[in-house]
Design a binder for these strands. Structure first.
Length: 619
DNA sequence: CATCGAGGCGCG
DNA sequence: AAAGCGCGCCTCGATG
């Protein structure tokens, strides 16, 4: 494995420094290129032995993608820092004990190749500076808006262009030099902050209780960062004309001069008639609640789950209106105008954006696309979609985490919930689902709580495992996922209340609230382990899939990931590759299970569908 | 005028 | 039929 660390220290004056280092961060060589030549340098150097090390994938990778350059692996220093700094398995490391630094902050805003992060470093030598220094590469940066990048750009081989001009000759010489270097080299810039951070991280990993698992976590988190950048670059194929058609069908014509779409307006009139109030505004919750109560409904909120249980003529039109209103405001024409450009939706994925390790997204609500509009996600002509999701991922993960063989056995087939019925544990599939979800979330009331004794009897190891995670959380402790991501500690106020709970002198509502809060944190840690470990499986799955896809098709028409939703992936593929993609999806899932849990007999079946559009794939 | 929390609802 | 985990984003209405 060759590590090449990329940084743009202020001493390099807008140029980019490439360091060849070993796994401990020892420098063997370094080379400085003008920022504009950075993509050529990467293209010339990258191969299947190189792992690129950089502070933020979201900063360095998009300019490469714009040039049609793809890297195979990276080590994202900021994402890895967050994991290693808080993991219980690296708690003794200098990294964990260091004071707060810029590495603990969110990704900073930067111009495409300038580094303003560590500009307090000494500017002691002028090596690499001078007239040749250039700022900015002229390519779109990570903050380019949706639609700045269109169809997959495979316009030209960047390798070819690199092999031509002066930059190419320079890089070519560098490659030869790198290949021949066997002796550590001096660091001509003094200490580079990215380099130092890389060394701290590698040291923390090496000294960790579980270097294998934690190393895998850091690797797949970084692979996720590459995938997130690639998916944003390619975008989800989105047919604005079909979206418009869906909206018009559901809501009526788009209003031209303000006001509601006609079908919504008609419902408003119906709702007003049903409650005998000709003027109230159903979009205002206080207004609506008042109107409902005056009409004789004994509701305490306007939420749909409460309304659903009420027998009154206003309920049906009101629920219909709420659904339409949601579609109109969240994914209506305004959404379409804002987020879809040139047939693509380019959401920004936030890797590690959720405490558990799941991804978040910002801009356009990419992870909450309602079923209603999924019909607008349509493959290009000659292309199709492969949509795959992991069936009952979290319970299967739980069976492996806890080593519960009987639960793993229930997961041997396609449908774990049905298997619970077949094993005689519960009487219906629905009960199985409610019961399992209740165990994962820590339900204490209702139907799912009533199922707990049966589940405990059938799967003692699994249920004890989540119960223990909850107990740890209730005491304010830390739990850790399978690969080593640890839960955050409760904040100061939590501990203040926790004292009230254990202090024998405190009684009544105050104590009640304290206990309630402790249980709430327990439910969080209970779920953290399962949700977080499931996210790790999903990342292994997707990283493996990405590698397989890279071998398929041709550079001009290669299947590529376009969407990821916790336990579901979407690949946009030439029709001719679809079956190969389906096979890869299954193979990658099997690989992920083995990678995480070795020989433990847990299975992770995925359901993969080939379809021209997303709605059909889910239907 | 901008910002924030609450209520609500979409997704897993 | 049901209330327990994790999110982002919309509107309204209160507050600065």
């Amino acid at each position: 494995m060759v590590y090449i660390l990329v940084s743009a220290p202020p001493t390099a004056r807008g140029r980019v420094v490439l360091w060849q280092v070993d796994a401990t961060g020892r420098v063997f060589d370094s080379h400085t290129v003008p920022a504009a030549e950075f993509p050529d340098a990467v293209d010339a150097l990258t191969d299947d032995t190189v792992r690129w090390v950089w502070d933020d994938t979201a900063h360095w990778y998009p300019p490469l993608l714009e040039r049609g350059i793809r890297v195979q692996r990276c080590h994202d220093l900021r994402l890895s820092h967050a994991i290693l700094r808080h993991s219980a398995w690296t708690a003794g490391s200098p990294l964990a004990h260091a004071p707060h630094s810029a590495w603990d902050d969110p990704v900073p805003e930067r111009a495409p190749t300038a580094n303003t992060l560590f500009d307090d470093l000494d500017d002691t030598d002028g090596w690499g500076g001078g007239a040749g220094a250039e700022r900015g590469s002229g390519v779109g940066g990570p903050d380019a808006g949706p639609g700045d990048s269109g169809l997959p750009s495979n316009a030209q081989s960047a390798a070819q262009s690199a092999a031509q001009g002066a930059a190419g000759r320079q890089i070519g010489a560098y490659v030869t030099r790198v290949a021949n270097k066997r002796q550590p080299a001096r660091d001509p810039h003094g200490e580079d902050e990215s380099l130092r951070e890389f060394r701290r991280q590698r040291a923390a990993l090496a000294a960790s209780e579980e270097p294998g698992r934690l190393g895998l976590l850091v690797a797949v988190e970084s692979a996720g960062a590459l995938i997130a950048a690639e998916m944003r670059f390619h975008g989800i194929p989105w047919r604005a004309d079909l979206h418009d058609h869906i909206l018009t069908e559901a809501l009526g014509e788009r209003p031209r001069f303000g006001g509601r779409p006609v079908k919504m307006e008609a419902l408003v009139q119906e709702i007003r008639r049903a409650v005998g109030n000709p003027t109230f505004n159903p979009d205002s919750q206080p207004d609506l609640l008042r109107a409902l109560r005056r009409a004789g409904l004994s509701v305490t909120s306007t939420s749909k789950w409460e309304l659903r249980g009420v027998d009154h003529p206003v309920v049906a039109p009101l629920l219909a209106y709420k659904k339409m209103s949601r579609l109109y405001t969240a994914n209506g024409w305004a959404w379409l105008d804002t987020w879809v450009r040139d047939g693509r939706f380019h959401p920004e994925y936030v890797v590690g954006g959720v405490v558990t390790g799941r991804w978040a997204a910002k801009g356009g609500g990419a992870l909450q696309l309602p079923g209603t509009v999924r019909g607008a996600v349509v493959a290009d002509p000659g292309w199709t979609l492969v949509v795959a999701d992991a069936a009952q991922l979290e319970p299967r993960i739980l069976s492996a985490l806890s080593g519960d063989l009987r639960m793993a056995e229930a997961g041997r087939g396609q449908d774990l919930y049905q298997a619970l019925v077949d094993q005689g544990v519960v009487d219906t599939r629905d009960h199985a689902k409610v019961g399992i979800l209740g165990a994962l979330y820590g339900s204490t009331t209702g139907q799912s709580a009533a199922l707990m004794p049966r589940l405990t009897r059938a799967y003692p190891a699994a249920i004890q495992f989540v119960a223990e995670a909850a107990r740890v959380g209730e005491k304010g402790g830390v739990v850790t996922t399978w690969l080593g991501r640890s839960s955050p500690r409760p904040d100061d106020q939590w501990w203040v209340d926790a004292v009230l709970d254990t202090d024998g002198g405190v009684t009544g509502p105050q104590r009640e609230r304290a206990m309630q809060q402790a249980r709430s944190w327990g439910r969080f840690t209970r779920n953290f382990v399962c949700q977080g470990s499931a996210a790790e499986w999903a990342m292994c799955w997707m990283a493996g899939l990405r590698t397989r896809l890279a071998e398929m098709g041709s550079p001009e028409a290669r299947p590529h990931l376009v969407y990821f939703l916790h336990d579901e992936v979407m690949v946009h593929t030439p029709v001719g590759c679809a079956e190969e993609v389906v096979a890869a999806v299954h193979a990658a899932a099997a690989d992920a299970g083995r990678l995480l849990f070795g020989g433990f007999p847990v299975e992770f079946p995925v359901q993969a569908m080939v379809a021209g559009d997303y709605a059909a794939a889910k239907g």
